[in-house]
Design a protein around this nucleic acid. Structure first.
Lengths: 222, 222
DNA sequence: TTTGTGGTTACGGGAAACCGTAAAAATGAA
DNA sequence: TTCATTTTTACGGTTTCCCGTAACCACAAA
């Protein structure tokens, strides 16, 4: 099994929980914890230079901001940075993120080997992810594999995002029309705005514009 | 220190992490973990009946939904249910929630004794929370106490909450008026609804009703 | 060229929201 | 009880939103 693991996770109880369980259940020897992405990157590079590289990276995606300023602020950025420098270390992502588009991107673009969902069975999932990764196989938590297959992904175009954001900022449709014209974004007419909002209402099953914005907020689209 | 603790937390790595650390650092004897609120409630009641009650409740606020159907779906609902039945067990909330209104509500309305923020230092915070609770003192994580003092908090009356919720569900003001009349909630006239919405818009600095609902969502008021 | 298609814009009528005013009802104190 | 104050309701006028229709434009296929 893996000997030296770099675990990137900001919430301390989670990293402790993982470390303990991994040692108990899988016999991992050495787990180094980093609470910031920047810190993780430095540790990774240092280990490479010292000829004592990590053989697995487990990372969260989102990290809380605090007083420290950071250049790498998300797990995705960390992964990208490593891949851009041609480090092919196997990576397991451990996150509450469940939007298919995000997961697909990680698996397909960055060659992440496993995606473990932070949930009620994540210890078992993590063990399976480790085993699969060891065998150079892919792994995705059971809770997600279903939704990944089923749900077609619904993403907003830039224009839709602008509309919803402007509405949530308190601008009327007419004001938005003016703003769009000023920025010379096309389309900008009131009609087009209305039409687009209608389409969005259908897609997000909203009766009123208020509900549309509320739903968009719930789904994390804005 | 506390002898028998009920820990309500859905993500298994977190509950493991807490359990391990609490036993190591504070010498807690017995930690029972519940991954669902319903389950937690049942365990709590059973312990009371068996004359072996818990002497502390530690709970998360938000829980993932899965195939199981649940009647209590959030930590707040669980707390409310216990308090409504006059159980005065000390409660520590452990959550990533950082909106002041939510925290204030828990501390003031439900008499939660400590609020621990899920972050990089939450183990230490949790230990301090336990100590404070033992001494019947209050405790709030350092990261939060600052923001709590600064921002003055705005809490809604029940009527306001109904309005905003109905709006976010896609009902028009007229429909809401009908609904209120059916439930014989006073006031129920369109005029009163309009007036109340105007007041809310002022208080939440919203230009439009859409922004009002969006802001309310951001602040965790609905 | 014509024709068709997809996207944008313009416009008009009806619905809902917005805003001010005033009457009616409820509340509370003397 | 009376009187004053607050809350709730009713109503009319204006704005914004909503929705259908139709014109306009660019582009591509025939």
């Amino acid at each position: 099994m893996f000997k030296k693991i770099l675990l990137v996770e900001d919430i301390d109880t989670i990293s402790h929980g993982i470390a303990v369980k991994m040692k108990q259940e899988v016999g991992v020897v050495d787990i180094i914890i980093a609470q910031y992405c920047d810190n993780a990157y430095l540790k990774f590079i240092k280990a490479e230079k010292d000829q004592e590289p990590f053989d697995l990276l487990i990372t969260d995606l989102s990290f809380k901001k605090d007083y420290r300023e950071s250049t790498i602020s998300s797990g995705e950025q960390l992964i990208k940075k490593l891949r851009d420098q041609n480090y092919n270390i196997p990576i397991i992502v451990y996150s509450i993120e469940e939007r298919p588009s995000v997961i697909k991107k990680l698996m397909n673009w960055y060659g992440v080997s496993a995606y473990v969902f932070k949930g009620r069975n994540s210890v078992k999932s993590m063990i399976n992810a480790l085993k699969a990764t060891k065998k150079k196989e892919r792994f995705i938590s059971a809770e997600l594999s279903a939704t990944l297959r089923k749900k077609e992904i619904f993403t907003l175009e830039e224009f839709d995002t602008i509309l919803l954001l402007q509405l949530s900022k308190g601008n009327t449709q007419e004001e938005i029309s003016v703003i769009l014209k000023e920025k010379s974004i096309s389309p900008s007419s009131l009609s087009s705005i209305e039409k687009r909002l209608n389409r969005l209402k259908e897609e997000l099953k909203a009766k009123t514009t208020i509900q549309l914005v509320a739903n968009a907020k719930d789904l994390g689209l804005i």
